[in-house]
Simulated scan of single mutants.
Amino acid sequence: MSRALNIDTDNPEAEAKPRRFTVDGQSFATARAEPGLHVTATPIGNLGDITLRALHTLAGVDVILCEDTRVTRKLTQRYGIATPLAPYHEHNAAKVRPGILQRLGEGAAIALVSDAGTPLVSDPGYKLVQEARDKGLRVHAVPGASAVLAGLTISGLPSDSFLFAGFLPAKAGERKRRLAELKDVPATLVLFESPQRVLSTLTDVAEAMGGRKVAVTRELTKLHEEVIAGTAEEIATALSGRDSVRGEITLLIAPPASDMQTMVSDAALDAELAAALRTMSASRAAAHVAEALRLPRKRVYARALTLRGGGDEGRRQD
């Protein structure tokens, strides 16, 4: 097993071998990483999104476990990292996991990466981490890029409460049943979807969840990054007019309307209104804040009148 993973922790010469990485043509030395499993996030598209700590980790471990060595090799070659790569994916995980755990118990430093983003999100790393912790082995978090958070932050949908639901089922019937289970969750839903199924999924979302706001984020951090916002039906219509839909997709769905309204506290609403009322009339401030917070204008206007003192007298000119 150690030969297959190319882990030489028992070899003094390997221990003393310089470990280096390169950034913009400048070479940096690093020490051997601490023993244990290093769960390391890698870029989701733009290779410049790697963290400095991740570079030290990948250069400092004894071996890097990856879903596809061809994908990870592009990253290690970009940064001049010579650490051996070994496959760890859903097809070989059960077979190679005992050997990995043995080497961790013997003091190896091993990094676990996915093809893109943070490991354990829709990949087989969970069982490895679980068994390592059950055996009392060290597990280190090396955080970084995440398509879930990247999509959420630029979607324009509420981000203070969200549920990541992974990939929806490929079969239409099972997908519809899953959406029915999720439709009443009082949080923004974050899903991964393939470009081949996104139109079918949007059709099912429109059927299950009506006219909720939806965002399709595509090719995050890459040259052709795109956010398409609207209802599921509107986005499906827009995408159906294209020759093809390409790239990795993160699909986000707003919470049910009632939850959208209650997620904003009175204190938060008052703060937004107070700022707007400094330069706007109550009616203009209410319209502005209602749109920004996605709240019913009637509720916001009533609150604006209360803050203004019961009426719209003395309104400021805009």
Rank of each mutant, 00 (worst) to 15 (best):
L152G: 13
H91F: 15
G80M: 06
G241Q: 14
I44A: 02
D243L: 09
L152D: 14
A82R: 00
G136Y: 00
V300K: 06
E13A: 07
L128H: 05
H56K: 12
V121R: 11
L157G: 15
Q317Y: 07
P195C: 12
A41T: 10
D68A: 02
I249Y: 11
K171Q: 14
V205F: 03
L120P: 11
K222V: 04
R242E: 14
D62H: 02
R315S: 08
L295A: 14
R178F: 14
K183I: 12
E34A: 14
L128E: 02
L137Q: 08
R246M: 11
P195Q: 09
T51D: 00
M209Q: 02
I253W: 04
F167Y: 14
R297V: 10
I154N: 05
R178K: 15
S2M: 08
E233T: 10
V113W: 01
S159M: 02
A14N: 02
G314C: 11
P296H: 04
I154M: 13
E234C: 02
E219T: 03
E207G: 11
P195V: 13
L269P: 09
S240K: 10
V63M: 04
V289S: 11
G105E: 14
L223P: 00
E193L: 02
I253H: 07
N11H: 09
F21W: 05
A215Q: 13
A254T: 07
N6M: 04
G60M: 04
E207N: 08
L37M: 04
E193Q: 00
V245N: 06
R19F: 01
I228H: 00
L104P: 10
L52S: 10
R218W: 01
G60W: 10
G156I: 04
A215W: 12
A276L: 10
A215Y: 12
R315H: 05
R299F: 04
